[in-house]
Design a protein around this nucleic acid. Structure first.
Lengths: 246, 246
DNA sequence: GCAAAAGTGTTGTCCTTACACCCATGC
DNA sequence: GCATGGGTGTAAGGACAACACTTTTGC
């Protein structure tokens, strides 16, 4: 167990009137951000992992994480890590939850904030392969370092819910995609099968896909039409959803 | 600005193989939990607030917050604060989000995790009135200490969404309640008016209310029937919701 | 008897589901 | 010509929205 720098139970907080003094009386905790970066390839949901540096974890798999720097916002930290590891700017990123179990890190107490991001594997070739950075199928994940398996599981559930209510999936696909690819994505993430005709009708009625008048190339069957997602229109008419349902 | 105890940019993390050493290389950040405790009274959503201790905030309103103790889980910290301030155990509590702006606390960097809880005002008389603890209408909240206004606003939005998908509202009502009280609750929180017949039909079809065969007392009009919420049945048949909708 | 809220049903619309056949392309 | 997936319509059922009158109680 590491020693803390601030006194454990300092002068009664209720009496402190000075902000600096009050803050100095708080225990300080090392803080990290872990990025759960999902991708989609071969009709499988994947997550970007490395092998842990730490001896204690041998070669166990680990999320991309890093300390939060002094005076760095958490969101910034997550974007920084994503950029350092993948070269990517300008992608989707969302805070999911804090993981705070006192024994989650073997080196002493460390609290981590999990961020989720989604990206299109084919658009972002991995240039850095340090620590055996690679895409790993989510379904076949076994043991991981720290509590990272728990974090991935939680983020996956978060994604399942989120993708039904927000157009996140398009961040996992190429800019131009076929309806089949879109349906495969939903089926893989939600772990269900969907009726093809109803799926297409649903998206047709939303009227958020732009028919770009191109066809798939080099497929061993009848080529499908390609679409783009109409992000502007979606942003303009965001649905204000009201309905009690549980 | 306070000084940090850990070196700002320490030895290259990639080279550290020892967990303790790695953790010591992380900047440590003072951590607090803030509880946004909602209640419902006089058909208005209220939140439990105190006046800030700090000179810099004079008498500005503040959430119930406290440091996180060494080796305390965040959830535990939130329950502890709730208990210290209200005497309550065994209520609903949920982590909402981290607020991490480097300048959010005038005494230096402090990161706070917001927790939401809901309780029935009439079941929990306030025994402690330190710091002018009181229920404040959410609608008429103006300035607050720190970024607490932002936190309350965020938690209120979180609640609006959450109450539509989970039976949270019952934590704000007495154990026995009338359909009118339930509807008033939803209308107040969502800021809309609902059709009375459709509202009753909806809850009737869910079949999650237990008719306890009692009537309202001492009302200046025809008394309504009283119900309890069937938490067991709800837990047994939790809905697995699938539906793309955005 | 009057004020105030409780209680109750029907209809139209829309959304969801289930389901089967022909078409275009590569090989 | 055959294998593979692309593309399409309809009918039934369920959920939701709109809407008005009678009943019970306190005063």
């Amino acid at each position: 167990m590491m020693k803390k720098n601030a006194p454990q139970q300092p002068v009664e907080a209720a009496l402190i009137k000075n902000a600096d003094e009050l803050v100095r009386s708080y225990p300080a905790v090392p803080l990290t951000v872990d990025c759960v970066i999902f991708g989609f390839e071969e009709n499988k949901l994947k997550v970007l992992l490395i092998k842990s540096d730490l001896e204690i974890f041998e070669n166990k798999l680990s999320l991309l994480g890093d300390r939060v720097l002094d005076d760095e916002e958490l969101d910034e930290a997550a974007y920084r890590i994503l950029k350092e590891r993948t070269g990517m700017n300008d992608v989707f990123l969302d805070q999911v939850r804090v993981f705070s179990h006192p024994k989650r890190h073997p080196g002493g107490r460390v609290i981590t904030i999990a961020y989720c991001s989604l990206l299109n594997i084919n658009h972002h070739e991995l240039k850095i392969h340090d620590h055996d950075l690679h895409w790993h199928s989510v379904a076949s994940l076994k043991e991981m370092a720290f509590d990272h398996k728990e974090i991935v599981d939680y983020c996956y559930q978060w994604l399942q819910k989120r993708i039904q209510e927000h157009p996140l999936g398009f961040n996992l696909l190429p800019e131009k995609f076929s309806l089949r690819e879109l349906q495969n994505l939903y089926e893989a993430i939600l772990g269900i099968t969907l009726d093809r005709r109803n799926f297409r009708k649903k998206f047709a009625s939303m009227d958020l896909l732009i028919d770009i008048d191109e066809m798939e190339q080099d497929v061993p069957h009848r080529p499908g039409k390609l679409y783009k997602f109409n992000f502007e229109k979606y942003e303009r008419n965001k649905r204000k959803w009201v309905g009690i349902d549980f």
